[in-house]
Design a protein around this nucleic acid. Structure first.
Lengths: 143, 143
DNA sequence: CTTGCATTGAGACACAGTATCAGTTGGCTT
DNA sequence: AAGCCAACTGATACTGTGTCTCAATGCAAG
């Protein structure tokens, strides 16, 4: 299994959009697909050293625009990325260690719709992050 | 009216927390209190030139920690600040010009509570930003 | 009025990301 | 199989946002 199945999906998706499958992109995607946890852009760049930092960032942006990965904003405001397991979802982020889980806030759409009816704004999207202590960090919680 | 009423509230609040009311802080707060719209840290620093940039940032952080101002994340990921008109609320942000309105997402707590019941995480907070075109920008909207 | 400790300012640093631009390459076209 | 060229790459410089350090300063408690 030199090629993670998820990587193939990402590659196919990019190809379908008319992007070139270059060897740097191939490597970046392979590396991302192998990760089950959050990663930062710099981590990824460091790990893929022969590949230029700019290229790593460009590929991330590409995947982000295609909705193939998602950006997670930690409670301290720093950001990292993770594979998007397709479909609209939100994140439950540990304020202590940054571990992240996907959550489906099923009724949020209804709440947003209510805003839609009550404002002059033409609503096009939203960003939600829920913060808490993960089971692992709960024990170390101050007080 | 050399001192905006809102400024007095902020100052009192800081004093109550045991912080010193120095003249740089006084000026920063006065300047913030006079703004009705979003502002960026750099804007503020530029406007208050004789005051050190670091001090402006430190004062912003202070006010942020005290919940006296809030941070708004625009749709492009850049951030700005605005006076917090107290109480928990969220932001409706224009994706085009960055104009911001406070919104009260009344039922969101119920949604979050539902998550609380369904996860191992000990939930302590959340961040919500709703994006759309403001009335002014709606007309210029591409298609 | 003194004095301690919080605060300040200047500047260096850190981090995340973008811009530039000459050089390379994937993949269509023939 | 060869050629072409827009898309892509990598090195590097730059930007924006914020933090750190550390000597100097100044609130406010006594």
């Amino acid at each position: 299994m030199t090629l993670h199945a998820e990587a193939q999906v990402l590659l196919d998706d990019l190809r379908d959009q008319g992007f070139k499958i270059t060897s740097p992109r191939h490597l970046v995607i392979q590396s991302i697909a192998a990760k089950s946890e959050n990663f930062t852009a710099e981590e990824l760049a460091a790990e893929l050293t022969p590949i230029g930092r700019a290229t790593v960032y460009r590929t991330l942006k590409l995947l982000l625009d295609q909705g193939l990965i998602c950006r997670v904003v930690l409670s301290d405001g720093s950001v990292c990325y993770r594979l998007s397991h397709r479909g609209h979802h939100h994140h439950l982020v540990c304020v202590s260690c940054g571990a992240t889980e996907d959550v489906h806030l099923s009724d949020v759409e209804a709440v947003i719709d209510r805003v839609r009816g009550a404002t002059e704004y033409d609503i096009v999207g939203h960003r939600i992050e829920v913060y808490g202590f993960c089971p692992r960090c709960r024990g170390l919680q101050p007080r």
